[in-house]
């Protein structure tokens, strides 16, 4: 079959191919080269996890290390985008959005509307999400619902190497600002990825598994967990349909609603905090637009409403896992 590469290689390949295709595409962020101004090697890191390694050698001045100064470089990306470049910014961890949020939600997101449709700000902000690395409360969050809330932003959450490459190329070519959320735990995931450039349209959910009894909507790392749960449930004759929205803004409402129309049962799995999160949002959508199809209460599988803990014992309890998904499915599968 097609060639297999890692999730993080898929990201690198997307950046590489788009930088080769369009000289307006630039990359900036903290240590995306690594070593700038130091006495040792250039391209020392290629990103804190090596995702941008090798781009410096090919694209020189079009990839830039920045000071640890997120407001300045995210704002610079917005300004550069308004002036014809297509910047891809690496905001290392989504937890850091607090120090540059104004540039994202007051500037990037609103230019087009405030300026009466006369501006475009085609930036991509790549940022890591997710718990599971004992990285504690300020390096582990899944804050994509915060961005999803904001009109003018698009929010993309790949769950596999194939998705990562195709969605990132789409994000770079897209004329709207895109927040591109990469789950740390997926970087080492291997999967089939075409060598050629390709795009996956935003707002089109992936039906990961077809099934007839229960619909499971899951994002990012939770997709794999849902697949594990579904495989276990299948042995007991419970057939799960798994939907990965891939983008939370725009959200493919139709695929979710059509699935629930068929199954009558919904579990939403989200690693983000429960209040005002994607799980609540999708549950509200289904309650509003597919109420008549529901045969059981909607189950939400999320972490508790707490910061992400450090201790492994606590963090493992925090993260929704296959067992919790399986239990939620069983509860509503048996509901009469």
């Amino acid at each position: 079959m097609a060639r297999k590469i890692l999730f993080q290689q898929a990201i690198n390949e997307a950046l590489d191919q788009e930088m080769a295709r369009d000289s307006n595409v630039i990359v900036m962020g903290e240590d995306v080269i690594g070593g700038t101004g130091a006495d040792g090697e250039m391209d020392a890191w290629g990103g804190v996890l090596g995702v941008t390694k090798g781009l410096y050698g090919k694209y020189g001045e079009r990839i830039m290390d920045t000071p640890i100064s997120e407001s300045a470089f995210v704002g610079a990306a917005v300004g550069a985008a308004a002036c014809g470049l297509r910047p891809v910014c690496e905001l290392m961890f989504i937890d850091f959005l607090g120090v540059c949020f104004d540039q994202i939600y007051n500037q990037a997101a609103k230019f087009r509307y405030m300026f009466g449709g006369k501006a475009k700000t085609p930036i991509v902000i790549r940022t890591m999400i997710g718990a599971g690395f004992r990285a504690a409360a300020q390096h582990s969050q899944c804050l994509y619902p915060v961005f999803t809330h904001i009109p003018g932003l698009k929010v993309v959450i790949p769950s596999s190497p194939y998705e990562a490459k195709g969605l990132l190329i789409q994000a770079i070519r897209d004329d709207d600002p895109v927040i591109f959320c990469e789950h740390k735990a997926l970087y080492a995931m291997e999967g089939e990825v075409p060598e050629e450039s390709y795009t996956i349209p935003f707002g089109e959910a992936n039906v990961v598994r077809e099934g007839s009894d229960v619909t499971i909507v899951a994002l990012a790392r939770m997709v794999g967990f849902a697949e594990k749960a579904a495989a276990a449930l299948a042995k007991d004759g419970i057939s799960c349909e798994i939907i990965d929205p891939r983008t939370t803004s725009p959200l493919d409402e139709d695929t979710i609603l059509e699935s629930v129309e068929n199954t009558g049962r919904l579990v939403v799995v989200d690693e983000a905090s429960p209040r005002c999160g994607m799980a609540a949002d999708i549950a509200a959508l289904v309650a509003q637009k597919a109420f008549g199809a529901l045969e059981a209460p909607i189950e939400l599988v999320t972490p508790p409403h707490t910061p992400v803990p450090f201790s492994g014992v606590l963090e493992d309890l925090y993260i929704p896992g296959p067992a919790r998904i399986e239990a939620a499915v069983r509860r509503i599968a048996e509901y009469a």
Partner: peptide, 16 residues
């Protein structure tokens, strides 16, 4: 709000 944006506009001028 403006100074960071101007860095980007200047960067675009420099790279282009």
């Amino acid at each position: 709000g403006g100074p960071p944006l101007v860095c980007g506009a200047a960067l675009a001028a420099k790279l282009k």
